[in-house]
Amino acid sequence: NKSRCTICSKLAEIRHEVSVNNVTHKLCSNHCFNKYRLAN
C-alpha cells in the first residue's frame, strides 16, 4: 500500500498521515514528518 509522500514526493510506504482542513498529508518517514511540522 504505497502512496506519494507530501514532502519528498517519493512513492513509498506511508508512516504518518496528518489531516488538516480535510486535506490528508501523507508522510513516508519521521524525517519528512519533522520537515512537515517545521514548515507548518
Results as ranks from 00 to 15, higher is better:
Asn1Ser: 08
Asn1Val: 10
Asn1Trp: 03
Asn1Lys: 11
Asn1Glu: 11
Asn1Asp: 15
Lys2Val: 02
Lys2Ala: 02
Lys2Gly: 03
Lys2Asp: 04
Lys2Leu: 08
Ser3Asp: 04
Ser3Val: 10
Ser3Trp: 08
Ser3Gly: 13
Ser3Cys: 02
Arg4Tyr: 08
Arg4Ile: 06
Arg4Met: 09
Arg4Val: 10
Cys5Lys: 00
Cys5Asp: 00
Cys5Ala: 00
Cys5Thr: 00
Cys5Asn: 03
Cys5Met: 00
Cys5Pro: 00
Thr6Met: 09
Thr6Ala: 15
Thr6Glu: 08
Thr6Cys: 06
Ile7Met: 13
Ile7Thr: 08
Ile7His: 14
Ile7Val: 13
Ile7Asp: 04
Ile7Lys: 04
Ile7Ser: 07
Ile7Gly: 11
Cys8Pro: 00
Cys8Ile: 00
Cys8Glu: 01
Cys8Asn: 01
Ser9Ala: 12
Ser9Cys: 15
Ser9Val: 04
Ser9Glu: 07
Ser9Phe: 13
Ser9Trp: 06
Ser9Asp: 08
Lys10Thr: 08
Lys10Cys: 02
Lys10Arg: 10
Lys10Phe: 01
Lys10Ile: 04
Leu11Phe: 13
Leu11Ser: 07
Leu11Cys: 12
Leu11Glu: 13
Ala12Pro: 00
Ala12Lys: 06
Ala12Tyr: 00
Glu13Gln: 04
Glu13His: 02
Glu13Tyr: 03
Glu13Gly: 04
Glu13Met: 06
Glu13Phe: 07
Glu13Ser: 04
Glu13Cys: 05
Ile14Pro: 15
Ile14Tyr: 03
Ile14Met: 11
Ile14Ser: 08
Arg15His: 03
Arg15Val: 14
Arg15Met: 12
Arg15Ile: 04
Arg15Asp: 05
Arg15Lys: 14
Arg15Gln: 14
His16Ile: 11
His16Cys: 03
His16Gln: 06
His16Ser: 04
His16Gly: 02
Glu17Val: 11
Glu17Gly: 03
Glu17Met: 07
Glu17Lys: 06
Glu17Gln: 08
Val18His: 10
Val18Gln: 05
Val18Asp: 06
Val18Tyr: 03
Val18Arg: 05
Val18Thr: 06
Ser19Arg: 12
Ser19Lys: 09
Ser19Thr: 13
Val20Asp: 08
Val20Pro: 02
Val20Leu: 09
Val20Trp: 03
Val20Cys: 03
Val20Met: 11
Val20Gly: 10
Val20Gln: 10
Val20Lys: 09
Asn21Tyr: 13
Asn21Leu: 07
Asn21Ser: 12
Asn21Val: 05
Asn21Trp: 03
Asn22Gly: 15
Asn22Asp: 11
Asn22Glu: 13
Asn22Ala: 09
Asn22Tyr: 05
Asn22Cys: 06
Val23Ile: 06
Val23Thr: 13
Val23Arg: 11
Val23Cys: 03
Val23Trp: 05
Thr24Trp: 08
Thr24Ala: 11
Thr24Asn: 03
Thr24Asp: 07
Thr24Val: 13
Thr24Lys: 15
Thr24Gln: 08
His25Ser: 12
His25Gln: 12
His25Gly: 11
His25Leu: 05
His25Ala: 15
His25Tyr: 09
Lys26Thr: 13
Lys26Gly: 11
Lys26Phe: 11
Lys26Glu: 09
Lys26Pro: 09
Lys26Val: 13
Leu27Gly: 02
Leu27Val: 09
Leu27Asp: 03
Leu27Met: 13
Leu27Glu: 03
Leu27Gln: 02
Cys28Arg: 00
Cys28Ser: 01
Cys28Trp: 00
Cys28Gln: 01
Cys28Ile: 00
Ser29Cys: 04
Ser29Ile: 01
Ser29Trp: 01
Ser29Lys: 01
Ser29Asp: 04
Ser29Val: 02
Ser29Met: 02
Ser29Tyr: 08
Asn30Asp: 13
Asn30Ala: 13
Asn30Cys: 01
Asn30Tyr: 02
Asn30Leu: 11
His31Thr: 15
His31Lys: 15
His31Val: 15
His31Tyr: 02
His31Ile: 14
His31Asp: 15
Cys32Lys: 01
Cys32Gly: 02
Cys32Ala: 02
Cys32Asp: 15
Phe33Leu: 15
Phe33Ser: 06
Phe33Met: 14
Phe33Lys: 06
Phe33Gly: 04
Phe33Gln: 04
Asn34Gln: 13
Asn34Ile: 02
Asn34Glu: 15
Asn34Pro: 04
Asn34Val: 11
Asn34Leu: 09
Asn34Phe: 11
Lys35Pro: 01
Lys35Leu: 06
Lys35Asn: 10
Lys35Met: 08
Lys35Gln: 14
Lys35Thr: 10
Lys35Ala: 14
Lys35Glu: 15
Tyr36Ile: 09
Tyr36Gly: 07
Tyr36Gln: 07
Tyr36Arg: 04
Tyr36Thr: 13
Tyr36Lys: 06
Arg37Met: 06
Arg37Ala: 13
Arg37Gly: 12
Arg37Val: 12
Leu38Cys: 12
Leu38Ser: 13
Leu38Phe: 02
Leu38Tyr: 03
Leu38Ala: 15
Leu38Thr: 12
Leu38Met: 06
Ala39Thr: 12
Ala39Val: 11
Ala39Trp: 07
Ala39Ser: 14
Ala39Gln: 12
Ala39Lys: 15
Ala39Glu: 12
Asn40Thr: 06
Asn40Met: 01
Asn40Ala: 13
